[in-house]
């Protein structure tokens, strides 16, 4: 911990894109705030400092502040990322923050990813489909290979932060595109033997241009995924599978 370098104290300039759609007089504009950088400062700490000391109306979303809940995705110097685990020392003195595109703007840096993600879950039916509705909880569980369980978990690590959508060329053009987050979910359930759906069922959900055939393979999604999910490989794999249905 003593190996964390002490930097000379900098003055950081935050250029924040602001707009409050709740206020009919609000127009989108950039506002600049200056604060002193502190040791190990994250954007979570910096934004709270701005709100508490400089402008109490500034809106943003943090929940876990530990990089696991996906609430705080925003555009940081041009790239989508999780603000809570972005350290200011990795950024220049001028820091540009903007809300994620595509999602409905709530205010300033806060966007409604929750609503978008719920709609995707409903549309893609992202749950285990099993005709045997109630399992007998008294009995031993059905066995599963550890390697399979782990592979499912690898895809399930998605935190629905929205970075992949914000970085997606297709999502900017087509509002119905389910994006890497949606296609990855289908890949997850396709892998899961507890889900009885067949490829033909999945084809119904993603076998068109709002699904797997809409992807332009720009792979911005994989570049920005904070959980480093293997999105490119999953997209290619799903396209191959769906093309053969």
């Amino acid at each position: 911990m003593n190996n964390i370098p002490v930097r000379e104290e900098r003055t950081l300039r935050f250029h924040i894109l602001r707009h409050n759609p709740q206020d009919s007089e609000s127009v989108p504009h950039q506002q600049v705030f200056e604060i002193q950088e502190a040791d190990s400062m994250t954007l979570f700490i910096a934004l709270n400092e701005i709100r508490e000391n400089l402008d109490s109306s500034l809106q943003f979303d943090f929940v876990c502040r530990a990089g696991i809940c996906g609430s705080c995705a925003m555009i940081i110097n041009g790239k989508p990322g999780l603000a809570c685990r972005t350290l200011t020392r990795d950024l220049p003195e001028d820091i540009f923050l903007a809300p994620l595109p595509v999602f409905e703007l709530i205010s300033d840096l806060s966007v409604n990813t929750g609503k978008w993600m719920r709609a995707i879950s409903e549309r893609l039916e992202t749950w285990v489909h099993n005709r045997q509705e109630e399992v007998d909880l008294q009995q031993l569980e059905a066995p599963m290979e550890q390697s399979l369980a782990y592979s499912i978990y690898e895809l399930e690590r998605c935190i629905e932060c929205g970075c992949c959508i914000a970085a997606c060329g297709t999502a900017q053009m087509r509002d119905q595109f389910v994006g890497a987050v949606g296609l990855n979910k289908i890949a997850r359930f396709r892998l899961d033997p507890r889900d009885e759906r067949e490829d033909t069922d999945f084809y119904e959900l993603i076998g068109d241009e709002s699904g797997v055939f809409g992807c332009l393979t720009l792979l911005g999604c994989e570049d920005v995924c904070p959980k480093e999910l293997p999105l490119a490989a999953q997209l290619a794999y799903m396209r191959r599978k769906m093309a053969s249905v």
Partner: peptide
């Protein structure tokens, strides 16, 4: 608690398994 774990297993939780 054992029923809860088994229910979650049926719902899709990829619990780590014995090898």
């Amino acid at each position: 608690a054992p029923k809860a774990v088994r229910e979650l297993a049926a719902w899709g939780v990829p619990w780590n398994r014995v090898e």
